[in-house]
């Protein structure tokens, strides 16, 4: 058993657990966005940041990928953590301003507006990559990917055209935390019998 502290409370974990997993086991809430239980963590969004403190130093780590170790001191609600969180929410509000889900979550953490310029007011995807991960890891396919379109990345099927690779299982829609995949899925899935008509 590995012993350490979260918010000064003694906790126990086994090697291989992450800080986030341990915190959740003890009912300590840490907000996450790009994390989902069904796929491997990617540590992309940094919303799950927590502070590690020693006597004379401290650092921020992403709790969803940070492994536990003996004697560490984890704090989930320090000022630094809250600042980063606010900053991330502000970034998100500028990157995917049209997502109701992101707005609600930001509100919960006291963020209502952003200092950053809004690129595209209709964007709701925050490029967390959950959709592509679930397609690959759970469904076993690679129907969608993060497409590089110059400066602006985008999630979708290659060339943004319906692809026969997609089996239209909808896992990506279910997992998407911002609801962005809902409007995107129709440009990914192709109709089975439409393909048939083509072959007929």
């Amino acid at each position: 058993m590995i012993k350490f502290k979260i918010n000064d409370k003694e906790v126990q974990a086994r090697s291989g657990w992450t800080v986030l997993e341990t915190a959740r086991q003890y009912g300590i809430e840490i907000p996450t966005l790009c994390f989902h239980e069904s796929v491997a963590s990617s540590g992309a969004c940094r919303l799950c940041m927590v502070e590690l403190r020693e006597e004379n130093w401290s650092k921020l780590v992403a709790s969803c990928i940070y492994p536990v170790s003996e004697g560490i001191n984890v704090y989930t609600e320090t000022e630094r953590v809250q600042n980063v969180r606010r900053w991330i929410f502000e970034m998100l509000l500028s990157e995917c301003p049209s997502s109701k889900e992101v707005k609600e979550m930001a509100k919960k953490y006291g963020v209502f507006k952003t200092r950053f310029p809004v690129q595209n007011p209709n964007e709701s995807c925050m490029l967390c990559g959950l959709c592509t991960r679930v397609c690959e890891e759970v469904v076993g396919l690679s129907a969608i990917a993060t497409l590089d379109r110059g400066v602006h990345k985008k999630v979708g099927a290659p060339f943004l055209r319906p692809t026969e690779v997609c089996v239209a299982c909808g896992c990506c829609v279910t997992i998407c935390p911002t609801n962005a995949m809902r409007s995107r899925i129709d440009s990914v899935r192709s109709n089975t019998k439409m393909q048939l008509a083509k072959a007929a």
């Binding site: 089975t192 393909q195 007929a200």
Partner: peptide, 16 residues
């Protein structure tokens, strides 16, 4: 049954 070519199978399920 359908189609002139052999790729008419429309079972479309997960790879496994």
């Amino acid at each position: 049954k359908d189609g002139h070519f052999l790729a008419g199978r429309h079972v479309r399920v997960r790879p496994e």
